[in-house]
Design a protein around this nucleic acid. Sequence first.
DNA 1: CAAGTCTGATTTAACGATACATCACTCCCC
DNA 2: GGGGAGTGATGTATCGTTAAATCAGACTTG
Lengths: 363, 363
Amino acid sequence: MPRGPKKTKLIRAATLADVGRMAGVSAMAVSAVLNGARTSSRIAPETRERIREAASKLSYRPNAAARALANRRMQTIGVAAVIEGGELNHYFLEVFNGILEAAARHDQNATVFSLHDWARDPERLHRFCDGRIDGLILLAPAFREDHVALPAHTPFVSIHANVPLPGVLNIESDEERGAYEMTRRLLGLGHRRIMHLAGPDGLLGPARRIRGYERALANQRSAGPALVVSAGFHASEGRDAMRHWLRRHGKGELPEAIFCVNDGVAIGCIEALAEVGLRVPEDVSVAGFDDSIAARICVPQLTTVRQPLRAMGGRAVEILLTRITQPGTTAGSTDKSVVFPVELVTRASVAEPRGAAPAGGRA
Amino acid sequence: MPRGPKKTKLIRAATLADVGRMAGVSAMAVSAVLNGARTSSRIAPETRERIREAASKLSYRPNAAARALANRRMQTIGVAAVIEGGELNHYFLEVFNGILEAAARHDQNATVFSLHDWARDPERLHRFCDGRIDGLILLAPAFREDHVALPAHTPFVSIHANVPLPGVLNIESDEERGAYEMTRRLLGLGHRRIMHLAGPDGLLGPARRIRGYERALANQRSAGPALVVSAGFHASEGRDAMRHWLRRHGKGELPEAIFCVNDGVAIGCIEALAEVGLRVPEDVSVAGFDDSIAARICVPQLTTVRQPLRAMGGRAVEILLTRITQPGTTAGSTDKSVVFPVELVTRASVAEPRGAAPAGGRA
DNA sequence: CAAGTCTGATTTAACGATACATCACTCCCC
DNA sequence: GGGGAGTGATGTATCGTTAAATCAGACTTG
């Protein structure tokens, strides 16, 4: 009795030639049947069957390396990202999931390059790219180097690039509009003094969020002055920035609402407020950005801005693939960037200001 | 003036032969200098220099596919995982980070295979494995199929396998001990009636946690009877299970402490308790498992069990690599499993039962 | 001074798959 | 019954790299 997978030849995986020998045909015929879809050559149905049978009997598997060498295509796209263990992980996972889904649809693989210690060994990124992947997606939120010596022979797109990458198509969300809408929402509820806990300096994304915030304030007469406080991307930085501010200014000058650069910072901010007995949203409204998992777990749940991260990841793959298959033509898009819309998510951390009337005490 | 990277030959990346031609030597000499470390062949320092210069002038990059074909090594390990967008992502990211770090140390790449729709197309996993990766790490927490037709020609280890995979080395943490220690901790604080909100049925990990819990109760006379309630892995399942229990039994039979199968379930559990006006830890102590990000974000912060996830991921890579380089020998470990210790993390969600003195100096 | 030892490189032959050109053969039709 | 068509397969070259064997000189040594 044949017991399924035989151990007869565990020595070496079967090749096309092996299958061909067994089926009494040449390796090319096997290739045509098993892998080739678009070859000109036709194989008789009966032979096809014989070949398929032999292949399954030998449990033949195509060798990706050999195929890649012959095709000049690895069927693999690379994802370079800073994969943090902290609050930012939601971002990576959502985008990455989008990438994986799209990649699977096109029968591509995805391999990940961690930019953690990029600065320590920039050469590694090149070793990663060259001849190993067909294209690269740079997932850039925490990536701030401006002089990335990018692989010249590898098609390339970025998502949420935080520094200008000349000549690179960037996939981004409309962060400015998100910040604008969120600020307008806060204004609409009656808040006047609205603070912005901002991200790291010198990055494109945080700058856009500041711009949206400032534009919304400028558009409304009744709004208080812009009040931008630098924090960072992490909860601890949000907490520290808020603590520091509270120590310097005291509760007297407290804004009615705080719009934070992301959910992590918002959570840190709420923590700092709680330390001095201030409650959210009763005493202060706090809004985040990103709609991370944390936004639904923390108390109170965060009003925030959602970006279509999965869709963005998927789009990156699509664009990359058209660029790979149709090089030369600036395929997929002639633009320098693709912008996705964002969406306000309303939860408990934002409410009307205390008392129905304008709080009045201006600074 | 030569302007750095020339565009002269964007047509095709330079090969060994190209470099050799430029340096006036053969391709093999170039290979020996640029890539070979252990070849028997020696090259004169002066020639070395000339070759290196030519290589950099042509910005030569080795072609991974060709090298892989010649070496029968892809320098790539595969990671198969269910990558959830939800609370379990922390798990994946920590392990994956450990994998990436270790892989980078050994100059290996990591490519990810999503098991999301594994059942819909089992063949995909094979296509992913064969001839594309040197070894596979199955990251298995949410993976429950028992009849994985695993690639016969690919070295293989699993992490936290939740079903027995015959003949596969499994890397696991001492979940039973973690559950045991946590339950003992609760008992030590004076709790008697302790409930366990358990994970999905039929999985190894959750079963171990139940065993640890039951063993701790059995070892202590004063302990109440074991009370195991099935929940799942997700916050929503924890919430629903607890809601359901509360509706059926009411607050009268409420346990003094609830040990949950993971942090997500603990968070859901706290939510359900809050809905009926019960506070944690004042009315009930709640403990989680995993020390996810959520455990530090939720209110109150969770007392939980930490597993050395990064280290486990790293270890998986090390074992896999020794198996790859020394096949035949059951290298790295002859055992069926490698067990990592766990660690209790004390936070606010667990306190002494109501009635006991409020403990001036905390533990 | 012939034979052996280093040194420094080259040749040759895979690795496994694919593209393109070619070839043998049957059939059909005028 | 010989010249296309049309089928169904095979040969050959190639992709870029590496391992093992080989080779040309210069230099030592008995």
